[in-house]
Amino acid sequence: MQLHRDLDKIRAAGAELYVIGNGSPSFIEGFRAETKWTGPIYTDPSLAVYKAAELKRGVTKTLNPFALGGTVKAFMNGNRQGRVQGDAWQQGGALVIAPDGAVLWHHVSDRPDDIASGSDIAAALSEKRRAQP
C-alpha cells in the first residue's frame, strides 16, 4: 500500500488517515497483517457509507482492460490478490474531511489500480491550512 509512505506527511499536516474496507470485521486483522498497515481500520459491511461517499460499484467498472492491467501490475509488484474478502465489484476512493464537515478532497476510483495517493491527500490538507492561517 503506497499510503504507508505518506502517513507521516498526513499526520504532520495535523490529520489522521483511516482505512475503510467492506466485509466482515473479522477480516480486518488479516488485512492488517498482510499490508503491515499500522493506522486505524474500519469496515462498512453494508456498503452504505461507500454509497453515501458516491463511490462506484459494478461489474463493468471491474472487468475492463485497465482493471486487468492493474491486476497484472499489482501481481508483478508482489501484491497478489488472494480470495476476495468483501465486495469484489466495489471500487474504492478517498475523502478528506475538515472538522467543520467540509469535504476538502474527494477521489472516486474508476479502476482497481486507480487508488488514492497519499501525496494528493497531504496536498489537500496543506491547501486547507494555507486557506485558514
Partner: peptide
C-alpha cells in the same frame, strides 16, 4: 460501532476506501 463523524470531530480525517479486504 463507531460513528463516522467522530473521526473528524477534532482534526481533519482522510478516509481511504479500499475495494475490499484481501
Amino acid at each position: 460501532t463507531v460513528e463516522l463523524g467522530t473521526l473528524w470531530r477534532d482534526k481533519p480525517a482522510a478516509l481511504v476506501f479500499v475495494r475490499h479486504f484481501g
